[in-house]
Design a protein around this nucleic acid. Structure first.
Lengths: 311, 311
DNA sequence: ACCGGTTGTGCAACCGGTTGCACCGCCGAC
DNA sequence: GTCGGCGGTGCAACCGGTTGCACAACCGGT
């Protein structure tokens, strides 16, 4: 591997000039620049990030922390962040932690020492624990707000309110809301929005949960949903919706004729029936926004709209 | 941040001795070790990985490359690899690439220059392209075999053969196999196993595809499946199965009364009906095995069994 | 008492860039 | 014709560990 010194020798300049030519071209005379670029190309020089990072006191790593990898919801978010990270010459390292236990907080604190910044997606620990990590390193929250920390959240509460109103308008009198994992920051807001919309429309809303955002939990929720007598269900997550749909069908009910379940457009489209609400979060945008917030910091919350549509 | 030099000063030793005490304790006298550990603890010393990596000529990074993040199939694999990586003090950085285009190969080659090793999950590029990356850095393949490269694959072909046989034994005469993404290495083996089992049992097998491993593709496959007249379907991936199931139900068919679709246990359980085959791949084990293969190299393929069960 | 062999520690070079500061030459201004 | 200023470059220290080599002390054996 060619080093800066090699390039310098070939071009007839000093290491430092070469370094400047490569990182701050405006500090160097044009023809010097050209000669150095030539030499670099000729030698196939590529920057040694490790050395660069050591000298600069940075690591070039950003940790993306998710509560779980089982929930496909986070995949596009990671994808979006990853794309932006690559554009800034950063690496994204993925870690799994909810921040609910001291051990997890400790592990994440250790990890924080090895990265330039963290993106915490839907962390479930206490404000103070999360903030403590934010005190050490730049940090951005996704789908969670903590005063003083920058964050980007999908405005699903509003969306869910719209869904409940729409369902009521379509004649549903009993609606069920299936809550997310305990500790979820989004959940209370969604439940509240659902309640408010139901109250407003004069329909009954039953709130169930908490449930992990998994297919299996959706299956296990079927019983409770049936008992509630609801004709429409608004689950916290797509995985939950899918599990519920299949379990309902396993009990002989027809979705959506007997009971309507909201999900993503992708899923509601498949059913090919009208009147099913779809809630679509643009995960990639969330991820990109989070990464952008990390690289060009600014406090406050960025609230991204969520699309609601009806099949 | 305390440095080695600080610890050395406090403990009354030289940097080098401290370094050795921390990395190769057996080279240092017991009481020296104790004093150094004391000093380190007192100062809250933690190793600067960047400096360490520079001196050692390594980066401590392993790239985990997946063809897509949309498919939840890779999540547990990443999780498993991540867990093992953490145990070896390595960071996992996730990248998305199929290796099908020169641009992707180039991007991955660049990435390869910044990591200590790569795990390529289900890469879809040509053998030569993949092997070229393997020539630069240690590499492990997941769900793909290329002569000369270490790999770990889930033996889904065998599982699919069992499923087809079992379906035939349960009275299905027309069975459909839904293929995976074009370029998938696993797909031909699975299709072949399905064909062999069908031939063996004297039933008809129709092979469809290629399909991306997504929910939407499953939906779009419904038409073709219906046209085939199959009473049982074996899809390449769970997402495909779910999409298919919902689309079939959207067309008024009952799963599994009218048509049986294989999936993961999780999904088949939800249906609460007997006679549905389930195929379960232990993703975490795959990931762990891949990481282990990377850290303690050995050529050849590690073939992990896949569980088949019937609801 | 002498010697070859451990064992434990220090010295200093090194990994490969980055950057503050000094220096040189050339410019326009007075 | 001098002088301040500035663009361009080199020098060397530095980031924080790692490691080859030298060396001193101490071991048991003869």
């Amino acid at each position: 591997m060619a080093t800066l010194a090699d390039v310098a020798a070939l071009a007839g300049y000093n290491k430092s000039t070469v370094s400047r030519a490569l990182t701050r071209p405006e500090m160097v005379a044009p023809d010097t620049l050209a000669r150095i670029h030539d030499a670099a190309k000729q030698l196939g020089y590529v920057l040694n990030r490790t050395a660069s990072h050591l000298a600069r006191g940075r690591t070039g790593l950003v940790a993306f922390v998710v509560p779980t990898l089982e929930n496909a919801f986070f995949a596009p978010i990671i994808g979006g962040a990853q794309a932006r990270a690559a554009a800034s010459d950063l690496h994204l390292t993925v870690a799994v932690a909810t921040l609910e236990t001291p051990a997890q907080v400790a592990a994440l604190t250790r990890l924080a020492g090895q990265v330039d910044g963290l993106i915490l997606a839907a962390p479930r620990g206490e404000d103070a624990h999360v903030a403590a990590i934010g005190a050490t390193k730049p940090i951005v929250l996704v789908d969670r707000e903590i005063p003083g920390l920058p964050s980007v959240v999908a405005d699903t509460a509003t969306a869910i309110g719209q869904v409940v109103s729409g369902l009521a308008a379509r004649g549903h009198h009993r609606i069920a809301y299936l809550g997310g994992p305990s500790g979820s920051w989004q959940d209370p807001g969604r439940a509240a929005a659902a309640r408010a919309a139901a109250l407003d429309a004069g329909v009954t809303l039953s709130v169930h949960g908490p449930f992990p955002a998994t297919f299996a939990a959706g299956v296990s929720a079927a019983e409770e949903v049936l008992a509630s007598g609801a004709t429409a269900v608004v689950p916290y997550a797509t995985a939950l919706a899918l599990g519920l749909m299949l379990a309902l069908r396993g009990r002989g009910l027809h979705v959506p004729d007997d009971i309507v379940v909201s999900a993503e457009t992708q899923v509601t489209d498949a059913l090919g029936a009208p009147g099913i609400p779809a809630i679509d979060v643009d995960g990639e945008s969330l991820g990109r926004a989070a990464m952008d917030l990390l690289t060009s910091p600014s406090a406050g919350t960025l609230r991204l709209p969520v699309r609601v549509s009806w099949s």
